[in-house]
Amino acid sequence: MAELGNNAKAGLVTALNGALADTLALYMKTKNFHWHVAGPRFRDLHLLFDEQAAQLIGTVDAIGERVRKNDEYTLTSIGTIASQTRIKDQDDVTITADVMVAELRDGNMLLHKRLGEVKEAAEEVGDNATSGIVDDWIDQTEERIWFLNQTSK
Results as ranks from 00 to 15, higher is better:
residue 89 D to G: 08
residue 82 A to F: 04
residue 78 I to S: 08
residue 75 L to R: 00
residue 42 F to S: 05
residue 56 L to V: 08
residue 50 D to L: 10
residue 80 T to L: 06
residue 79 G to Q: 08
residue 70 N to W: 08
residue 56 L to G: 01
residue 70 N to P: 06
residue 73 Y to S: 11
residue 67 V to E: 08
residue 44 D to R: 11
residue 67 V to D: 00
residue 65 E to I: 13
residue 81 I to K: 04
residue 63 I to N: 07
residue 56 L to W: 07
residue 71 D to I: 04
residue 50 D to W: 06
residue 39 G to K: 11
residue 78 I to R: 13
residue 53 A to V: 05
residue 86 R to M: 11
residue 68 R to S: 05
residue 76 T to R: 14
residue 56 L to Q: 11
residue 80 T to W: 06
residue 80 T to D: 14
residue 70 N to D: 04
residue 60 V to N: 09
residue 43 R to T: 09
residue 45 L to C: 02
residue 46 H to E: 02
residue 40 P to A: 03
residue 82 A to S: 06
residue 39 G to Y: 09
residue 76 T to I: 14
residue 72 E to H: 10
residue 68 R to H: 11
residue 88 K to W: 01
residue 40 P to V: 07
residue 83 S to L: 13
residue 81 I to E: 08
residue 49 F to S: 03
residue 55 Q to F: 08
residue 64 G to W: 06
residue 87 I to V: 15
residue 41 R to D: 02
residue 86 R to Q: 15
residue 40 P to W: 08
residue 45 L to H: 01
residue 43 R to A: 06
residue 82 A to E: 12
residue 78 I to K: 12
residue 52 Q to F: 09
residue 57 I to A: 01
residue 54 A to D: 14
residue 48 L to C: 04
residue 77 S to A: 10
residue 63 I to M: 11
residue 74 T to L: 04
residue 79 G to W: 03
residue 56 L to N: 03
residue 80 T to N: 07
residue 58 G to L: 09
residue 71 D to F: 13
residue 60 V to M: 09
residue 52 Q to M: 13
residue 40 P to C: 02
residue 82 A to D: 05
residue 69 K to F: 12
residue 42 F to I: 06
residue 55 Q to L: 15
residue 67 V to T: 13
